[in-house]
Computed example of a mutant assay.
Amino acid sequence: MPLPQVCVCYLLRERDGRVEVLLGRKKHGLGMGYFVAPGGKLEPGESPADAAVREIFEESGLVVAAADLESRGVLSYLFPHREAWSQESNVFVCRRWQGEPTPSDEIDPEWFDVLAIPLDEMWDDARRWLPVVLAGGDVRRTFVFGADLATVVEERSPVA
Score class of each variant (00 low, 15 high):
71 S>V: 04
24 G>D: 12
62 L>W: 06
25 R>C: 11
13 R>G: 00
51 A>I: 02
98 Q>P: 02
125 D>H: 07
94 C>T: 09
144 V>T: 15
122 M>H: 06
73 G>A: 06
148 D>C: 03
123 W>T: 11
158 P>N: 08
129 W>S: 12
40 G>D: 07
36 V>G: 01
24 G>L: 04
84 A>M: 12
2 P>I: 03
100 E>V: 06
127 R>S: 11
60 S>P: 11
42 L>K: 09
113 D>N: 15
49 A>R: 12
124 D>T: 04
5 Q>N: 01
19 V>L: 11
57 F>Q: 13
65 A>Q: 12
32 M>T: 09
110 E>A: 13
56 I>R: 09
77 Y>H: 15
98 Q>A: 04
109 P>Y: 02
72 R>C: 10
90 N>Q: 10
60 S>F: 02
151 T>A: 14
137 G>W: 01
61 G>C: 09
79 F>H: 11
82 R>L: 08
77 Y>P: 00
134 L>N: 06
145 F>A: 14
35 F>T: 11
158 P>H: 10
50 D>A: 14
99 G>W: 01
132 V>H: 05
33 G>T: 12
28 H>R: 15
11 L>V: 04
147 A>P: 04
150 A>H: 10
140 R>P: 02
144 V>A: 12
160 A>P: 12
10 Y>E: 13
126 A>G: 02
155 E>S: 14
93 V>W: 04
8 V>E: 15
